[in-house]
């Protein structure tokens, strides 16, 4: 009944509008102001977002498709691609496990110092990537706190894979947790209490009740975490040593190639990373659009 009156009301308004030339609503600007603001905003975005994006692909394809493929299939570049994939494959799952554990503890339980704990989780976002790399050099480097001990045991962390993975874990630390915590807090503990009272074990409760409730939010967090893990430059640059073909990741390869000729090789690698960014944005937008109500309102990320 109510719905019916609503539609007729809308239809009436729609029909009356062109005839009566309704006055401009007081809660909006004049059409001229609106057009002006829109033009300024779009120009700004064009200058700082769309033009750089277009430039990546134009520059990458400057030497034609053959040159583009040759740059990507260059052995050092392929090694960098493998390295980036490997680092992400190691770092992201670590932060997923942490994110789930932290969210479970924070959202499904009440304990002292909870807000401090949540603040500390966000800490890596306010630390410069360079400092994130530096702390591991000070800890594991040859003159670091554990340097001598590691050396005597023949373990290399800095200028090797473990250091790169650690630095990547540091900079991508909060992504999954900060996505899951608000979401699981909103959902409360009712479902879990019901499952437990019906005899489910803790693991069963998580696996069959909690996980299906948060799966899209989790995917969202993993997506952002992965994008940052694959694209991180500063922290990784400090700990990797940039050994070609060995400890170079794709962003580091971009930097090395940018000092060489032809520049299109650097842009070719950069275009792969740009594609990753576009794919991430597309999936992220899709998740927000399709499952937005099953995810917490996302906070500004990094």
């Amino acid at each position: 009944m109510a719905a019916e009156t609503d539609t007729t009301a809308v239809a009436d308004r729609g029909a009356a509008a062109p005839a009566a030339r309704r006055p401009r609503p007081v809660t909006t600007e004049t059409p001229l102001t609106r057009a002006l603001l829109l033009a300024v905003g779009l120009a700004y975005l064009a200058l700082f977002l769309f033009l750089p994006l277009a430039a990546v692909f134009t520059e990458a394809l400057r030497d034609g498709l053959d040159g583009y493929l040759a740059s990507i299939l260059e052995p050092d570049t392929l090694a960098a691609i493998r390295m980036t994939l490997l680092v992400a494959a190691l770092a992201v799952p670590c932060n997923v496990v942490f994110g789930i554990a932290a969210a479970w503890a924070v959202a499904k339980h009440e304990f002292r110092g909870r807000s401090l704990f949540v603040t500390l989780i966000d800490l890596p976002f306010s630390v410069s990537p360079v400092i994130a790399g530096l702390v591991y050099v000070l800890l594991f480097g040859s003159s670091g706190v554990l340097g001598a001990w590691l050396q005597s045991h023949g373990i290399t962390v800095i200028f090797a894979l473990p250091g790169i993975v650690l630095a990547t874990i540091f900079v991508t630390f909060p992504f999954v947790a900060r996505e899951l915590i608000p979401l699981m807090q909103e959902q409360g503990t009712g479902d879990e209490e019901a499952a437990v009272s019906l005899g489910a074990s803790g693991w069963q409760t998580f696996r069959r009740v909690t996980l299906p409730n948060v799966k899209w939010g989790l995917l969202y967090g993993v997506l952002l975490c992965n994008a940052r893990a694959m694209g991180e430059f500063g922290a990784v640059a400090v700990v990797s040593g940039r050994i070609r073909g060995e400890t170079n990741t794709m962003p580091l390869q971009v930097e090395i190639l940018s000092n060489e000729f032809p520049l299109s090789a650097a842009f070719a690698v950069a275009s792969l990373l740009a594609l990753l960014a576009l794919l991430t944005l597309a999936l992220k937008t899709f998740l927000e659009w399709r499952y937005g109500d099953e995810m917490s309102s996302s906070q500004p990320g990094h």
């Binding site: 750089p52 990546v56 694209g231 430059f233 962003p251 990373l273 960014a277 944005l281």
Partner: peptide
């Protein structure tokens, strides 16, 4: 709007 979050900084700098 989120492009600067998603685009690796090295790519942004190069471009």
């Amino acid at each position: 709007i989120d492009l600067p979050f998603a685009l690796p900084t090295a790519v942004a700098g190069l471009t």
